[in-house]
Design a binder for these strands. Structure first.
Lengths: 203, 203, 203, 203
DNA sequence: AATGAATGAGGCTTCATTCAT
DNA sequence: GATGAATGAAGCCTCATTCAT
């Protein structure tokens, strides 16, 4: 890996960041290549040195977004062995990601979901596959639950269903929070959610 | 309402249905006026006799979708006076709407949300306003909860927060269900959700 | 065939004529869709109601050009049964086509040949196939020669080779004539060519 | 001529060769500067150290192609004083050039002709001038014929017309041969052509 | 001298909208 | 009222050329 390659990767990441900002503000459909170029402070043509097409940028943004979440969660889970603390970390990270995310940025996630749902079966772009992503999330939570059950901390529940429900509730809360941030304190909601959850599954 | 006007309204509704089908399948951005015309079995130009623009069709589809949900719920709520039964009805209707909805149709809701979130403050199109819609949902559930509290059936909870959480959980579950229908039986999940909910708020 | 279809075909032909004029003047590569639209007196977008792409226009122009030549020759050949008169007609028509053709129009034929040669094997566009066209020409002349031989008018020559040579000489003369029309009187050259030819093959 | 200048000229020639190869394969219009750079094994920017523009490369390729033919013929003609042998040499060289030329390379000549015909009057690029080139060819053959007439070997024919016809026939044969090499043995055709020619002009 | 990253003018094509029939 | 042919604004992308290294 020569320095040049690193530079190319860095610049690609920069363009992607710029693109995601614009996607978030205007929506993917209304974002023009020119907007991305302006946001990135480069010429229109330069984008094509790093991405094949607008669709490719979208695909990479998608990957980048969910990939980063997954990575953050993975890292957080490695810091503790206690299943309860792991659950707590999972929920906290999820909340934090949204807290750190610009409100307007949420729109892009809807675009991701919209496109992801539509391409559920087709795996268009060779990239976007929401089902796979959520399967991975469920696997992560499922592992925590299974560990807890093995350790005798949790009751023997249907881990797949419970995992799905945890994720569902988290996503739903995020959705409401995006629409109206005044409704609740997302950190507090996280605690409440964890409490009810533990209440339901703790032995 | 002369017959002609009725006819006009009927045809407008037909076009809207066709449009929503296509929106759902291809996404709003990728839907062409021609697609809508074909789906409606009419000429391309005819659409403009009933709708001002593509954006206007989207706005009406948005209104139509959430309006119908609201109407169905309202009707269901009128059939009983018991707060618990009303909650049950609310959840059941929500689940049913999705059950009756074509899987591929779900994409359109993401488009709605995506656009709704982006136009959160601006109320663009003079139509799309997710916050208002969800406020109305919360108001409906809030009324049920308040009735229940007044009647001594429910504990005295923060009705706004609980309403928001109920809606959030419902939406989150729908989202997961759209992505992977094999994960759980949505009717059963509704019962479970109601149970835990009642468990939490019943006196 | 309703009147509308006729109109569409007529308009398509008009656009094609306009396109060929512009192709001839500027060369295919330097011709912009806008040029064709202007030449045809229509809007840029209208072209796409009749042709799929610029390449498609080129392919159709190609077909049109060689098709019309072939048709004219075929018609002329039907007017007589005498092999010598047929040969005479063939040569005369070939010369006439060039005489009637705008000098500048010749450039397009070079573009046709250039593209035709390059796509010799691939038959790109599903359309351009010079070898096939020339095989047809050879077949037409070959038939005349065979008739003449059968009727005892011509010597028993290698009809394929002679056909090829006749075509080659005609094309070569056209080429020189395009580059410098003052060099010779093309009608006279036709007569000379026919004489030498008959001299060589007549019994 | 210092070594450096020689080097520059050598490299310029190399790039030109590479460019002509690519021109021949893809056509001038579809050839990118990048293709030429790759074919020449150099960087894209380096081309501009040797050529002003793509058009300039084309012009030089044009000059180079016809110049080389002219040079080869000139050299061959110097080897004999006999008009008949000179004619023979002229025809043989013409055939050889095509025999030595990659089949696919022929496309470039059509591009040359196409552009040459279009720039017939304007002498665009300050370079491409087919008429001038063919005038030179005619002059060469005309000299041979005049010598032959003067020496009493040939009949007193219209040397300009005969020269033009010889060239025309040669070009026409090449054209057919490019399109379908199986049609005839080009060496044999050369002999036949020379025979008929001599038959026509020999005293 | 050599490079290739950056650029933006310019092209092809799409498609929402108009409008004459 | 219904239509679809016509339109041109606008977008994506290409690629010849420039220029800093």
């Amino acid at each position: 890996m020569s320095p040049k390659i690193v530079d190319k990767e860095v610049k690609k990441a920069e363009i992607l960041q710029a693109a995601m900002q614009v996607f978030a503000q205007k929506g993917v459909a209304k974002t023009k290549m020119m907007d991305i170029a302006n946001a990135a402070g480069i010429g229109k043509g330069t984008i094509y040195e790093y991405f094949r097409s607008k669709e490719n940028i979208f695909g990479n943004a998608f990957l980048n977004f969910f990939g980063r979440i997954e990575q953050e969660i993975t890292e957080a889970l490695e810091k503790t062995e206690d299943p309860i603390e792991k659950l707590q970390a999972f929920i906290k990270i999820s909340a934090h990601i949204w807290l750190d995310t610009d409100a307007r940025f949420a729109g892009i996630i809807m675009d991701f979901w919209a496109e992801g749902i539509r391409n559920k079966d087709e795996n268009i772009l060779g990239i976007i596959n929401l089902e796979q992503i959520y399967t991975e999330y469920r696997r992560m939570i499922g592992n925590i639950l299974n560990d807890g059950i093995r350790q005798g901390v949790f009751r023997s529940v249907d881990t797949t269903s419970v995992s799905a429900l945890i994720i569902a509730t988290l996503d739903g809360i995020m959705l409401q929070w995006i629409i109206n941030r005044e409704l609740f304190d997302i950190n507090h909601v996280g605690d409440v959610l964890l409490d009810s959850l533990l209440n339901g599954i703790r032995k």
